[in-house]
Amino acid sequence: MRRYLNMLRHFWATSLAAEMEYRLNFAVAAATATLGLIGSLFGLWLFFSRGGTLGGWTWDQSLVVMGIFTVLEGVSATLLTPNLGRLVSHVRTGTLDFVLLKPIDSQFWLSTRYFSPGGLPDVAFGVIVTGVAAWRLGLEPVNMLLSLAPLATACVVLYSLWFLLATTGIWFVKIYNATEVLRSLLESGRFPSSAYPAAWRFAFTFILPVAFMTTVPARVMLGRGGAAWPIASLGVAVVLFACSRLFWRFALRYYTSASS
């Protein structure tokens, strides 16, 4: 465990040092995040502009959901895209061999090796939006703290889904755009799940568990509903993480390196 933490520190320190060479990238990422935030706020405002309601959620309450979504988006741009996006090219070029030979868990290496600061502006904006909304709603600090637990499980769910999909790259070398499909569907987490008609809600809870990523933490933050949903989301996270682990082991049996 200690060894892995130490390793993580070195991984991220080196990738950060490498990224420092491209400071302009960070500026562009920050500009993109700012424009994206303005656009998202505008898009959300449109729903309320003519007396519409978002499935019973007020403007401030929906801002909490959007803030959480923005944080998760930042997390995936910082950790998931840079790492899991490379998995397919490791398979294609055969460099996965080197990863498998290292005396370290291959899933750990593939999931944590790179750290891209480009997603950090999104994380910051998400925290600010959530914080402002929480302040305007006068939320209980206890609930804010409690919501960290479903937020952590949300990250695990997100990671596991992404890793499961990236793992299929062992068979299908051109999987890059499968993660794009996942991304376009994850966008649904921008809005509370009750904003969708029944068929959409069903799909986003049971087929692609987006509801557990943003709506459940937001409900805890707002002090709504009981413990049933957070416990369910813990269950979903544990099951999906175990699946990602097992599926990776299974997939590796079919890995035959490049050109063989």
Partner: peptide
């Protein structure tokens, strides 16, 4: 597929607003 996601929200929202 994003338009189809937004389709769901707007169909729901339009029931309430003007």
């Amino acid at each position: 597929l994003l338009p189809l996601v937004l389709m769901g929200v707007w169909m729901n929202v339009s029931r309430g607003g003007q």
